[in-house]
């Protein structure tokens, strides 16, 4: 992955993107935020991101569908799932579909940065 990582954040709770964007940008990443899955996938079809951070529960296109899209079309992009509804079953389903990591909300931006750094170091699929 490049030195300046390109990160996409997808969450229908606007506050999540609003808080994560400045925090991640201050770490030197380029960040784009999206409030719904459909526009995120439209953007992914045009632009390459190193890491996609997505919520699971969203109307219309959810985080699992974004994960499936990324794995099928841009497998070198890592997907980190964030959710307020974490469970053993959901974590296992996400990992089975190829998620790089699974994080329960709420979390500290520092915790997410640690996972991002791990993802950046990990070999591409």
């Amino acid at each position: 992955m490049n030195q300046k990582l390109k990160i996409m954040v997808v969450d229908d709770e606007a506050i999540v993107g609003k808080r994560l964007k400045p925090s991640l940008e201050s770490s030197g990443y380029t960040v784009e935020t999206f409030g719904d899955g459909r526009s995120a996938i439209a953007r992914l079809s045009k632009e390459r991101f190193d890491i996609v951070i997505t919520d699971v529960r969203m109307d219309d296109v959810d985080g699992m569908q974004i994960l499936e899209y990324v794995r099928a079309n841009i497998p070198q992009t890592k997907v980190i799932i964030i959710t307020g509804y974490a469970s053993v079953d959901l974590a296992r389903r996400a990992l089975d579909k190829g998620a790089f990591d699974f994080i329960a909300k709420p979390f500290k931006p520092g915790d997410l940065r640690t996972v991002i750094e791990k993802a950046a170091r990990a070999p591409s699929a």
């Binding site: 974490a86 053993v88 974590a91 990992l95 089975d96 190829g98 990591d101 699974f102 994080i103 329960a104």
Partner: peptide
């Protein structure tokens, strides 16, 4: 080797 059982941030926490 099953990816479903991989350690992740949520499970470690």
């Amino acid at each position: 080797a099953d990816s479903r059982f991989r350690a992740n941030t949520f499970s470690v926490n």
